[in-house]
Design a protein around this nucleic acid. Sequence first.
DNA 1: CGCAAAAAGTTAAACGTTTCACTAGGACAC
DNA 2: GTGTCCTAGTGAAACGTTTAACTTTTTGCG
Lengths: 370, 370
Amino acid sequence: MLPAVTLDIHSTCGKDAGRFFTVTRSTKPRATLKDVAHEANVSLSTVSYVLNDNEHAQRISHTTKQRVRDAADRLAYKSNPIGRALQRGYTNQVILLIVTWDLATSHSATAMAISRAAIAQGFELTVHVADNDAEAEAFLKRHLLHNVGGLLVLWDSPAMRESYLVQLAAEGVPVVDLLPDSPAGISTVTPDRESAFLEGTRHLIKLGHGCIGLISDTLTRPKTTLCKLAGYRRALQEAGLNYVESLVVDVTEFGFEGGVSGFPRLVQRNPKVTAAICINDAIALGLIAAAGDAGRRCPDDFSVVGFGDSTMGKYWRPALTTFGLLADRVAKASVGLVLQQRQETSPEPKTILIPEELIIRQSTGPAPNS
Amino acid sequence: MLPAVTLDIHSTCGKDAGRFFTVTRSTKPRATLKDVAHEANVSLSTVSYVLNDNEHAQRISHTTKQRVRDAADRLAYKSNPIGRALQRGYTNQVILLIVTWDLATSHSATAMAISRAAIAQGFELTVHVADNDAEAEAFLKRHLLHNVGGLLVLWDSPAMRESYLVQLAAEGVPVVDLLPDSPAGISTVTPDRESAFLEGTRHLIKLGHGCIGLISDTLTRPKTTLCKLAGYRRALQEAGLNYVESLVVDVTEFGFEGGVSGFPRLVQRNPKVTAAICINDAIALGLIAAAGDAGRRCPDDFSVVGFGDSTMGKYWRPALTTFGLLADRVAKASVGLVLQQRQETSPEPKTILIPEELIIRQSTGPAPNS
DNA sequence: CGCAAAAAGTTAAACGTTTCACTAGGACAC
DNA sequence: GTGTCCTAGTGAAACGTTTAACTTTTTGCG
């Protein structure tokens, strides 16, 4: 009945494994509506009405209701979601599709928050991690499309999203994209990177810094980085400061090492620079470390702002000033959007920006020569 | 048809939201087996046999098979997992239930790894995060028990696991526990904490340390901590060193601050101590920080070993010597166990221990006075 | 008393699949 | 010509729900 399978578990078996207390499976099948109906001496539909507490349930007498409920209790009846889904034509399952090379980052925290939010709205969250585009494609082609309550997508490649998400949305699946640069017509929930960098740069300006660097991605900047850059430029403009190309340093390595290599390049090109804002925390910490190695203490000689509120940054010394994403709000908003799209027959795509919170710690201070 | 819902999304709406490219839902329902049968001019059952490539499919001529497959392609038929699940009586859904107060740790990494492993075996992973025991209970009572392929559990409370998991297993749900101290009769996959601490303590002894502290949990030690303690004691015993009560320090705060407060207590009670092994990375980093504050540099004056291979520890200076869990192996083993239990009618509980890898970095060095 | 309308349920079809049991038609042997 | 076996399928029940449409009984009212 069940498909055959070959196992391949290479591992040591614990010494107290198999205490010879073997669980024997009870073969007694679970109670169904039919069983309850029989037990309560009513028809199957009556049981369904009572247990779902429908509008139709008002047409059923109180005594019968009680009899049904008692019977259900006696038989420990639990409704079978499969049967229900088949009849109703939809499930309460929301799928989170993650296609990305870097899982270490906040994605998993987002996933957990989404699970919570989904549960709160009566959904259940299925997480599908794909290692590459091909796997994700296979998944979408095969499994999906059927009866799913909604689809949330964390997919690095905009091209791939373009080719699949639009089609899915057209087929009636509520799709919400969690990264910017979404295809037209797809709803998006994403952190407000521009406002964050606006606020972060403002923070540095207010501290007296007049020459502020931006440590960025590789040259082929994704939309996420462009948003951050835009915020940075707006803050400079507001304050009447010039935007200088040389203050934006592109690092090729994405993490800590990127920050380490970025510092000398930034300082060499701009001797007067006293602060920098970085596109993520790891780069920021690398920058602090490299600055320290070069004899410039943070925050006395050099201020640094990160992005992402990593645990690393929290416990680093000096503790990192950074932006925390309100993962709960992202989760709530995206699940909410799915729900909303399920209701409407021709939903209008929405973009919801979730603000990031500036967390001021020790890595930013007054400009040294002020 | 769909349940009504009230939304409550408080957030700024992006300026380029709703580019007035509205996706209109095609109302055309998806093709079913029936449609394919009609298209190919065969009976419904024939289509089922062909598309599943059953043993019965051998009784069907090659030409008919091709006709069916062509028809399915033309209609873009995709099998409906709900219908299938209802008929078969089981799903390929594995549920990961996480009930814990600390989500920041490796749980989410494990979750992602399990998702991967599940997919590789043809399952899909549903993650259910519960904030407390009551929520988890509600979930198990309501949703679960039905048609689920398996249940993986990360639940802090052993008492709760005791009361639910055993019952579930008896009802035929393959249950795998991912924390130690499992109820009797439940299969477990868990890191081999004892061997890790054995190896970690050995590492310190080999470096010449003769007085090694252990920074532990609160006094009501969970099984996880007891395992670690056992490994520590075994290593001491092997080396002919005495086990001294005062070298084991219980900290009340679980994270970084715990390490900070633990250091003075350890040193005060044992002036000769030159190294410590900690039950997690955060405590270890706190310990290093506190040691530095007290004028004892790591690793020259004081060696520290952590547990968990956090990103923090990786980029800390000095980089932390710690243990990395092979999350992929945990995932593979646990999904494998679920599969295995599904096959057997009265499965024997197994305990699989996954080894942890000692990652030697900069926070451990030769004992100072050797 | 007679009729309408409300109250309290019941019947049966439908959702999409799987699979056991059956059959129509032909080939082959005797 | 009859019986047996094989090939290539078909028919129909079953899985557990939901729900539109119907029925039966009771009550209200003139």
